[in-house]
Amino acid sequence: EFTQISGYVNAFGSQRGSVLTVKVENDEGWTLVEEDFDRADYGSDPEFVAEVSSYLKRNGGIKDLTKVL
Rank of each mutant, 00 (worst) to 15 (best):
V52A: 01
Y42E: 00
P46M: 15
Q15R: 15
V49N: 11
T21Q: 02
D38Y: 03
L65T: 13
A40C: 15
I5W: 06
E25A: 12
E25Q: 14
S54D: 13
G13D: 01
F12R: 04
V68P: 13
S53I: 14
D41E: 08
G13E: 06
D41Y: 08
R39N: 02
G43F: 08
E47V: 05
V68K: 09
W30A: 13
R39P: 02
Q4I: 14
D38L: 02
V19S: 02
L20V: 06
R58P: 02
Q15I: 13
I62K: 09
A50C: 13
E1H: 12
V24P: 00
V19P: 00
V33N: 08
Y55A: 03
A40S: 10
G29H: 05
E28G: 08
E34M: 15
A11T: 02
L56Y: 01
S14F: 13
G29R: 04
W30H: 13
K23C: 09
P46R: 14
I62C: 08
N26H: 07
Q15N: 08
D45V: 08
S18H: 05
S18M: 06
D41N: 12
V22H: 01
V19W: 03
G43N: 12
S14T: 09
E51L: 07
D36V: 14
F48S: 00
T31M: 06
N26M: 06
F12E: 00
S54N: 13
S6K: 12
V33E: 05
G43I: 08
S53M: 15
K63N: 07
K63M: 14
L32S: 07
N59C: 13
V68C: 15
E1L: 11
D38K: 03
E25H: 10
K63I: 14
W30P: 03
G13F: 14
S54P: 00
L56F: 01
V9A: 07
L65K: 10
R16I: 06
K67R: 08
A11N: 01
W30Q: 14
Q4F: 08
V49F: 15
G61N: 02
V9F: 07
F2Y: 09
E1I: 14
A50M: 10
I5C: 12
S6H: 11
K23P: 00
A50V: 05
A50F: 09
V24E: 01
L69N: 13
Y42K: 00
S18A: 05
R58D: 08
D27E: 13
S44T: 08
E47P: 01
S44G: 05
G7Q: 05
F2M: 07
E25V: 15
G17R: 02
R39M: 06
S53N: 14
D41H: 12
K67T: 12
Y8D: 03
K63T: 10
E35C: 15
K57A: 13
Y42H: 02
A11Y: 03
K57L: 12
F12T: 03
N26R: 06
G13I: 13
D27K: 12
Q15E: 06
G17N: 04
V19H: 02
T3R: 14
V33Y: 12
F48M: 05
K57F: 10
V33L: 07
T31G: 06
F2H: 05
V9T: 11
D41C: 13
G17C: 07
T21F: 05
F37I: 02
F48K: 01
G61F: 05
L65E: 12
K23W: 12
T3H: 11
E51S: 12
S53V: 14
V22C: 04
G61R: 03
K57R: 10
E28L: 12
S44E: 03
K67D: 13
I62P: 00
L20H: 02
F12L: 03
D45Q: 07
A11Q: 01
T31D: 02
Y8C: 09
G7E: 05
R16K: 10
D38N: 09
D27M: 11
F37C: 02
S53Y: 14
G60Y: 07
G60Q: 04
G60R: 02
E28I: 10
N26E: 02
D36S: 15
D27W: 09
L20Q: 01
R39F: 03
K23M: 06
S18E: 02
E28H: 10
N59G: 03
R39I: 04
K63P: 12
